[in-house]
Amino acid sequence: MDSSADSGAVIEVAGLGKVYGSLVAVDDLSFSVRRGDVYGFLGQNGAGKSTTIRMLLTLIRPTSGSIRMFGMDISRHRSEILARVGAVIEKPDLYGYLTGRENLRILARLSGCRDRKAIDRVLDTVGLAARADDRVRTYSQGMRQRLGIACALVHDPELVILDEPTNGLDPQGIADIRNLILRLSREGGKTFLVSSHLLSEMELIANRMVIIDKGRKVVEGECRTLLDPERQVVHLETMDDVQTRVRLARSRWAAHIEDDPQGRIRLSLDRADVPQLVRELSDMDVQILALRPFNRLEDYFLSLTQAG
């Protein structure tokens, strides 16, 4: 029990699996979330993110594997663990016929929180104080999303799990949620596990991440390491790509050529070598149309999942 608490792991998932008949939704999945992380849980639609999150919250029984949170086994210490967790699962569905404040009061009570001021505090945090006494059915999608987050935060949990929190939001709404997560992480010291397929968003908030595909882990680690700023991958577009490939294959850059699922010319090299590459291509009479950097998380994610 204490080993994971000491190691600072808030969530430890080991060999997790979920099978529905012949469908393998999650397959031998392992990852860990450390205290204070904003942990990106990435995968395309249908990759198994929501199923995993539902297993973390005991909504679904795993077929195999184990889940430990705060150093405790979820199957044995369910209530103890869930009292320290807040979550929004997929859409923030709430009671439309009740007001925002009433929804919060219900969920606060169920979470064992009896501090009435906590409701006002959390309404202020998500910027919904002015509409708190309106029925939820009159709320916009963005307001519902913020109320969903308020419901997750009302009992002041240590760990907040948000499943696709920016789904269906406009750019301003997405920015608001992003800023809220960052603020709560920095100022509130909360740990976040945020799932998304909007990878560009995750790039801006996560410090660690796991990418899953078809229910399996593809890669896990620090975003900084995975997105090594010293390493540069480029896509080259020229007047005659076939000739360019031949010339590159005969040059010293041959070792830097990488496979590309879409058949583009892709090179992996040190960032400092890019100007030299351009010079030498010019010397080889290659007419360059475009040289596109390829190191954003979205590209990384696509290359990993498509390679699988």
């Binding site: 005991t58 663990i81 997929e90």
Partner: peptide, 14 residues
């Protein structure tokens, strides 16, 4: 149907 069952079942209540 409303989607609130998951909200209730993920709270620290058996």
């Amino acid at each position: 149907g409303m989607g609130t069952l998951r909200l209730l079942a993920s709270r620290p209540v058996s």
